[in-house]
Design a protein around this nucleic acid. Sequence first.
DNA 1: GTCTATAGGGCGATAGAC
DNA 2: GTCTATCGCCCTATAGAC
Lengths: 190, 190
Amino acid sequence: MSRWEPDATGRMVAAALDLYETRGYESTTATDIAIRAGVTERTFFRHFSDKREVLFAGSSDLENLILQGIADAGDVPALDMALNAYRTAAPIFETTRDFIVRRARVVLDNPNLRERELLKMHSLAVVIRNAMIDRGVPPTASAVAAECATSVFTIAFEKWIDGAESEGLILAIESVARELKSIADEFQVE
Amino acid sequence: MSRWEPDATGRMVAAALDLYETRGYESTTATDIAIRAGVTERTFFRHFSDKREVLFAGSSDLENLILQGIADAGDVPALDMALNAYRTAAPIFETTRDFIVRRARVVLDNPNLRERELLKMHSLAVVIRNAMIDRGVPPTASAVAAECATSVFTIAFEKWIDGAESEGLILAIESVARELKSIADEFQVE
DNA sequence: GTCTATAGGGCGATAGAC
DNA sequence: GTCTATCGCCCTATAGAC
């Protein structure tokens, strides 16, 4: 038997989500989470740079899928390429839906967590943007496509969480993308 | 002569920007800012809910202009309506360009401030979205238009700060909006 | 305006894996 | 021996309570 129970990170994430749900984020201390996970406060901060980060463990996995989505995309228009990043990432949300939904609710009603989520989403957009530039897509087109695909994903995710799109996250993405297309069609540049 | 020097808020904002520029955000304490502005630490926290907020003073003015931009827009397509919010807000950036540029640099290279900025931009998007829904634009169209107009503004702002668009922020907005139109044109929905 | 709890960083000690 | 995960104690600044 080893000195420590395995998967300290997983235990801390689970403990944090439980406590944030029941007591709320503000009134949960880092020490509370650590104790519930069977580690010390100091260990908590060695795994997570701050109290928010614990709900964003595994975001580097997400980033890798995003990058793969760009690499896997064929020689398609910029917006399609950017959207492919999120199509490729969608499965990791779908396979852990219960956790994702609980987590989303907690994040949604706490400004501190919301803020961190926006930073994470923004860094995904930056990753997509840079990967597209590396593939030879012009800089401004890459920036606009990456940002707008991220908006599409965010809105689709919102619908999927609400249960309005019970047919799956990818279909929700396609549906919101169609909406973007139609809005842009109506728009007349001066 | 009054008991206190006037414009405590303005002095704290200026002091904070100076210190964040020279020492960096992390190694500037709230007390440092307060002292430099000639107030007590307690006064600082009475004006600003936290150390980040000091660089976002006046964001309610911005929100009001945004709302006016939506109200002033004629019966135009959704994306045009959302963009009009930022066209209307553009002048307050242009009249204080020096301050805005210094501020943008500081925000850009500190994750804590960057995070807060993203939250502020997101709440502008939400304000636009709700104002559009109130004007009778369908919910999903409002969401997509508000988010994408915000992306357009952010990218245009970036170019304008870099000096690439010396002809003004509004022209930068129009130019990025054209890019969005052309990207959406290429995109073929499945 | 004063007091205090919490966030979160620094550092050295400890105990297993290899 | 090295490397890595944990602990424990000390510290300061933030930010909320009173």
